[in-house]
Amino acid sequence: MAETGKSDGLRLGFLTSLSLGERGFVGGLLVTNHMGRPLEFQCTAPVRPNRTQEILYGPTLGPFLLGDVIGRTLIEKATVKPTLVLVEVPQLLELRAQTSIPIACLESTDLKAEDAVRFPADALRLRLGMQSLVFASDFEDDLEAIRGKANLVPKEADLSEPFGRVRDALQETVAANAA
């Protein structure tokens, strides 16, 4: 792969998951180049917590599964390492403590929406493409490192779009396994 050897490029990882109800969760990581062209895709088999975990983790079970279990596994297994991993859930910024790769969360463009993701005013923000990204606090160096490459991403790039691709791909894998 031409892209894997480039250390000066910007490879974006898009990490998200899909709930399968009683069957648990599947997670996917799509690594693209700075233009959104896919380089590698990793996904997990369904991960289903047991009853003890459900009771003990309570409301933190989701972030635990997606972050510690799914996210960390996918990032570790990726052969094309992303320069920056993008997530849609703020809790997943904690994943940064377990990996050396910068993690950033997409900030909702419509902050008035009910499900809008809101961050404090003093959060570490960077504009990339059409979106505003928020980096994990205490990792200011991440922001500076990515800022130096931000011009590689076109201003009209919609960074929320690849998450849709990951979800569609996860649906395909789930359907293939069910068949």
Binding site: L39, E40, Q42, C43, A45, D68, V69, V80
Partner: peptide, 11 residues
């Protein structure tokens, strides 16, 4: 830590 099987696709 769970041991999660994964599937990968390289382009």
């Amino acid at each position: 830590r769970f041991k999660v099987p994964t599937f990968s696709l390289t382009f």
